[in-house]
Design a protein around this nucleic acid. Sequence first.
DNA 1: ACGAGAATGTAGCCTATGCTACACTTGCAC
DNA 2: GTGCAAGTGTAGCATAGGCTACATTCTCGT
Lengths: 136, 136
Amino acid sequence: MAAARKQQNRHSRVRSDHATELAEDYVEAIAEQIAEQGSCRAVDLAEQFQVSHVTVNRTIGRLQRDGFVTTEPYAPIELTSAGSRLARAARRRHEIVYQFLLAIGVAESIAETDSEGIEHHVSPETLAAMKDFLDR
Amino acid sequence: MAAARKQQNRHSRVRSDHATELAEDYVEAIAEQIAEQGSCRAVDLAEQFQVSHVTVNRTIGRLQRDGFVTTEPYAPIELTSAGSRLARAARRRHEIVYQFLLAIGVAESIAETDSEGIEHHVSPETLAAMKDFLDR
DNA sequence: ACGAGAATGTAGCCTATGCTACACTTGCAC
DNA sequence: GTGCAAGTGTAGCATAGGCTACATTCTCGT
């Protein structure tokens, strides 16, 4: 059952992608916030993601558990080296997908939104194909 | 705060996409199963999605609650007209994304996997751009 | 027509991700 | 140096989507 197996892997991967995509969005946002404002507070993330500060708080807790950020009570959020690496990778992927969408004729505002959702599901191979397309 | 608002909408849309993507995957699989085998049983979906039959059961319950499928205990799963419509739309979107990935040089096996994750985050505008690209 | 095995249903548990309401710190204005 | 507003933390709740273990129903071969 090659077809069935493929299906299985497909959906399993989509599920595991979901587990990492919030993490990627957060570290990306944290890196950006630090670059722009010098530090990142929970309230900034809450506004950006349009969720309550409580949700941010617990998500940050998970990110800390998973080794992507460090925080102490009432202190700003910092990225670990693993977090910075993840942020850079996500940023790069995001940028390529965004530019790629523009290149095939998608309007800026649409490309911004769609690239956000798409970036987490783009494999290295597909990202390479997008990059090749942009370089052509 | 135009930039902040954009960010907000971006992430809000990604979240709401997630709420519908399992539904789309399920109705798509159900439609395919019915087309191929004549009817769709929970066990088929469990195998395809690589989850337990219990998970399928409850997901089907949600789909029924939301008006996409009908079932009775121990009976096969049927699509409502809304479910069929959703399945057709998802199938079409999936196919365009898949063909598009092939067209930009992604290998078949990778395109199969990636299109599964990407299709749910492609807006009508981006889908149109992909279709244009294919038609060119 | 009945018994075994497959399919389905149910109970109860887990994590992730959302929320509101309320408590506590911090930091700044005065 | 105090007090209030903003920022954080905590308690407790909800839903989605996973699971295992066990109970029930169906179906098919003999």
